[in-house]
Amino acid sequence: MRYLKLLTIFYKNSILKELEYRVNFLSNAFMSVFWLVWGIVGVSIFFLHRDTMGDWTYPEVLMVVGLFTFFTGVMESLLRPNVGAVIEQIRDGTFDFVLTKPVNAQFIASLRSIVIWRLVDVIIGIAVIVYALGQLHVTPTPTQIGFFLVMIASAVAIVYSIWLVMVSFAFWFVKIDNITELFYAFYEAGRYPVTIYRGVVRVLLTFIVPIAFITTFPASALLGRIDPTTTIIGFVFAIGSFIASNRFWNFALRYYSSASS
């Protein structure tokens, strides 16, 4: 309850802050649409030459593209301004103010602000998913929607855990402000269904940098391409990563050296 009240204040303040920079809204909205079109054009090139990508038809791949955009929005509006900003705060020492507050540091560090403009990506992503469903003439069953929501929640937890772990490294290595860019580079692989990748690459993208859980699996759930066991595995995997990342964060906190004059 108290944390809910805090969240309200946090978000009110960051929306106030965002309103200071209104130009950002237009340019962000424009860029979201631009990158979406870019992604669809890219996918279209594959379908010029082949009818399926790793057994996925064009509208099915579109759904993966929609999820890719959706999670780009989640990361840009919720992760980069919070967890992502921790690296900068560690570097200039203002992370002190997070640690000296009588509220769980991970809570403040993870949820203090929101970049509302980037929620445009979330909305566009959902629109593409709905459009793809229309193209497929498919109406998902309640069970499929249920699995889909579980997979989305798991994916959010997994993405968050990855970011938290990446950022935790900044407690030891201050000069790694670009580590989140590294994640984005691998995230590019999530534009396409993971079944397109072969051998080592697929294992890597499923378990090491678990991009598959973020875009492919929720899409599979909605398309009824996934069995309950995989959903449960995904869910357990998400909880596992969440706990592990939290442990790692707490461990890394001990090495905070509080930059100062």
Partner: peptide, 14 residues
């Protein structure tokens, strides 16, 4: 409380 003359906790834009 900890006050540091060289660091600030106030939000710059608010």
């Amino acid at each position: 409380t900890l006050v540091m003359g060289q660091k600030q906790q106030l939000s710059w834009d608010l």
